[in-house]
Design a protein around this nucleic acid. Structure first.
Lengths: 343, 343
DNA sequence: GTACAATTTGGTATCGTTTGCGTAAATAAA
DNA sequence: TTTATTTACGCAAACGATACCAAATTGTAC
């Protein structure tokens, strides 16, 4: 079955005009008489003519479409960011094309390449936890594709970036736990090579140091699939609590890692239920957890908006932009029950 | 800035061949000598040639892309369904283009029209709670666009549909509550005109009738924005609990309505905390709620898969398909704490 | 009435790709 | 050697729309 649509040619034929005249009439060119314009416009409306965007894309070599690549849409941070992106994109006449890498590098590569060849005008991407090699993005960028990174950024590629203050987020969270009286704080986080992972780890370390607590590598566990694989989180939790030196509180990085961690903790009989935890999360549901979750919440919607504004600036700029900035936005820590020391 | 890509012409020029020869060589046509084929293939690989999908779409009038329209991706049911859709689509060589209506009819209309003109090969849609007028879909369908509905279906349009057994889901859920000893069960649900809303309401009514309980219209509240608007849920809860005849249990329909309802209930001081509830939800987090949530869970991933298989069948069928079926899948009720009667 | 400008329209190339048709050269058959 | 048949390739049209350039028509001035 094939979907048939009406073209400029149909109009030209019917009205005994050339396609060029019809085209110009429809775009309101000054060189077409009002009479002809009216004729064409009326008939176009009557038969419900819409220009074929595929043909336009081919001709103009742009699609008025922004590509979005995120690890996972079933993640509040990303779905909120997407909403922010859409709010700006639609307002500026762009459509968006959303794809998920599912934290897989291979899939990410395929998706981005497909998008590039489908003439997206620009790319908004938060890379997968597996993405160590960013050369494919580098080369795309070098060939002129406007790219803006958000959240999971690639530091080596020189373009606009939008992150939240991961260092401060982790620092504040850790400090909060320390002030509650916890002395042995574990950290479950994402792939070690991710920029945000490094920043969060730095914040965590700095808070420990500032409060004269020893940093112990054994208390930090990495989940290379960002929590997509429940087993890796289970393993991390296991290792933490089966060690001689057990943590009394845990800081987790990332929406998914946080929720999986909580469910793992809940289901482990051997774990002291007094364990405190605090996670990076944008879920609206954490209030309903028991205990309710203290979380570092990122301004996802806002980040999506800002990233999109920057991208559109890149796309629509007449001359190549050389000066790039990295927008750092504030995350905020919402204190609930899970991080409070029981006495 | 403009992204430049390498074309068949570049190859032809470099190799002193015509574009037709290059094209044929690349597609392995029998009328090209092995020598030339090798030459072309090697060079194409060397300069990393990829056919321009836009040009192909224009020529072949298909895009190998499936459009997905859902009310909201930040909803476990839909994000799981999307994962199911992707699993089949990618496996069959299709890409997907995801868009959200945000439960708005106007936005849905724009999105679908944009997709149609961008030559999607077929459409998978779960309509917004505002969609009463489906004539635009009807006309699209009449003009040959393959469409498969899932979850929020339009009964009047004759094509493939995938739903889960909403009647049974609601019937079983209501029966469970009745067996727990609740006698005055409220029902908060989505727009009255939605097919799934009607079916769930029927299941609810039937369960009441089968257990000799009176159906009271005052105990049924509709949220016309499917829970997107917190106020409407608040209002529904308010009305239920400010009436003389208060419910002792509530059945809610839809992921979002369920979670918003719970948070509303939790925050209302005046509501008896012994109120029982049971919701339609696909969230993995309901285990962590307190009380943990008894939920009717839909086979979202599976539904996405089945819908996509049907759509691809429609797309690739040589002759128009006249016989359509509606796949009805089993939902299952997972009993936790929130629906258990306290004694 | 002629010359020239202004206005309005048509022809055609173009974007990147595929494909039917034509044809030159190479090979096979007579 | 002549004729028939392959083989291997090029030309050009097409998909839908735009835009440059040329041309036709009309109007204006002398």
């Amino acid at each position: 079955m094939k979907y048939e649509s009406v073209t400029i040619k149909d109009i030209a034929l019917k009205l005994n005009l050339s396609t060029s005249t019809v085209s110009r009439a429809l775009r309101g060119s000054y060189e077409i008489s009002d009479k002809t314009k009216k004729l064409v416009e009326d008939y176009a409306k009557k038969i419900n003519y819409h220009p074929n965007p595929i043909a336009l894309s081919l001709k103009e070599r742009r699609s008025h479409t922004i590509g979005i690549v995120v690890p996972e849409i079933a993640n509040n941070f990303f779905s909120q960011a997407i909403n922010g992106i859409e709010s700006i994109a639609y307002g500026s006449g762009y459509h968006v094309s959303i794809s998920q890498s599912h934290e897989s590098f291979d899939r990410e590569l395929i998706i981005v390449q497909h998008m590039a060849s489908r003439s997206i005008d620009g790319l908004l991407i938060s890379v997968s936890s597996e993405t160590k090699d960013s050369s494919y993005l580098k080369s795309l960028h070098d060939r002129g594709m406007p790219i803006v990174f958000f959240d999971r950024i690639i530091d080596e590629i020189d373009t606009f970036k939008v992150v939240c203050d991961n260092f401060k987020g982790a620092y504040d969270a850790t400090t909060h736990l320390i002030k509650q009286g916890f002395k042995n704080i574990g950290h479950i986080t994402s792939s070690a090579h991710l920029f945000i992972t490094r920043k969060r780890l730095e914040g965590y370390k700095k808070a420990l140091a500032d409060h004269k607590l020893l940093y112990k590598e054994s208390l930090v566990k990495h989940c290379d699939h960002g929590g997509m694989d429940v087993e890796e989180v289970k393993k991390a939790v296991n290792e933490l609590f089966n060690a001689k030196d057990k943590p009394d509180a845990i800081l987790s990085a990332g929406d998914r890692i946080t929720t999986v961690m909580i469910s793992v903790i809940k289901n482990y009989k051997s774990i002291n239920k007094d364990i405190a935890y605090l996670g990076f999360s944008n879920s609206e549901l954490t209030d309903m957890f028991s205990p309710s979750l203290t979380a570092v919440c990122q301004p996802a919607f806002e980040m999506g908006k800002v990233a999109t504004e920057l991208l559109i600036k890149l796309i629509e700029s007449k001359r190549p932009i050389k000066e790039f900035e990295t927008k750092i936005m504030e995350s905020k820590i919402v204190i609930k029950e899970s991080s409070i020391k029981k006495r």
